Amino acid sequence: MRVVLASLTAATILLSSAGAFAAGMMTSGVVKSFDAKQSTLTLNDGTAYSLPKGFKDPGLKSGKKVELSWHMQDAKHAADTVKIIN
């Protein structure tokens, strides 16, 4: 009985952490560059994010502080949302 309970507990922990990882991450930073044609946003730390299709520019420009929700897609950072926080 203990073995079954321990196995179920371990499986629950692993599955819940995988679900949290898939949900995406949040980060904030300062815009280094924004390329609407290429749909990319680069922060001052050098991290580049691809923007979602249909992205509506909220007024992004160099020096603006932003908050992004993002996830990894094909070994690249893919932004889900971008919000100016200045």
Rank of each mutant, 00 (worst) to 15 (best):
G54R: 00
Y49Q: 12
Q73Y: 06
T40K: 08
L60C: 02
G46V: 02
F34S: 11
Q73I: 01
G29Q: 07
D57C: 03
T42G: 10
S62E: 15
L51M: 01
K53A: 14
D57T: 09
A18V: 04
H71N: 09
T27A: 12
A10Y: 07
T9K: 14
M72Y: 10
L68D: 05
L41K: 02
N44W: 09
Y49N: 07
I84F: 03
N44R: 07
I13E: 11
D80G: 08
L14A: 12
T27W: 04
T9H: 05
G46C: 00
F55Q: 00
V31E: 02
G29P: 00
V30E: 06
A11W: 03
D74M: 01
L15K: 07
Q38C: 05
M72L: 09
K53R: 06
D35V: 10
T42Q: 06
K61G: 11
T9F: 03
A75L: 08
A79E: 11
L8V: 04
S69W: 00
K56H: 04
S39C: 02
K56N: 13
K56P: 08
S17N: 13
K56E: 14
S50F: 09
Q73L: 06
V82R: 04
L43A: 00
E67Y: 00
L14K: 15
F55V: 04
L68E: 01
G24R: 08
P52S: 08
G59M: 12
G54K: 00
L51D: 00
L43D: 13
G19M: 06
L68W: 00
K64F: 00
G19A: 14
D45V: 13
D45I: 07
A23P: 01
S62Y: 01
S16P: 15
K32C: 03
A18D: 06
G46Q: 14
D74Y: 10
D57L: 08
M25I: 13
K37G: 09
M26S: 12
S7K: 05
L60Y: 05
D74T: 06
S16E: 14
M26D: 15
A11R: 12
I13F: 13
D57R: 11
S69Q: 12
A48M: 12
K65R: 12
S39T: 09
T81N: 08
K61H: 07
T42Y: 00
G24Y: 02
K83R: 15
D74A: 15
S17K: 01
G59E: 12
G59Y: 01
M26T: 06
L41M: 11
T47K: 12
G24L: 00
K83N: 13
T40E: 04
M72T: 08
F55T: 07
L14S: 05
T47V: 06
E67Q: 14
S7I: 10
K65Y: 05
K56Y: 02
G46P: 10
I84L: 13
S69K: 09
D80V: 10
V66D: 02
T27Q: 11
A48S: 10
G29S: 03
K53Q: 12
A18H: 05
L43Q: 07
D74H: 03
S17M: 05
W70E: 05
G54C: 06
P52E: 10
E67H: 01
K76F: 02
L41P: 02
L8E: 14
F21Y: 12
K53D: 15
T42N: 07
D45W: 08
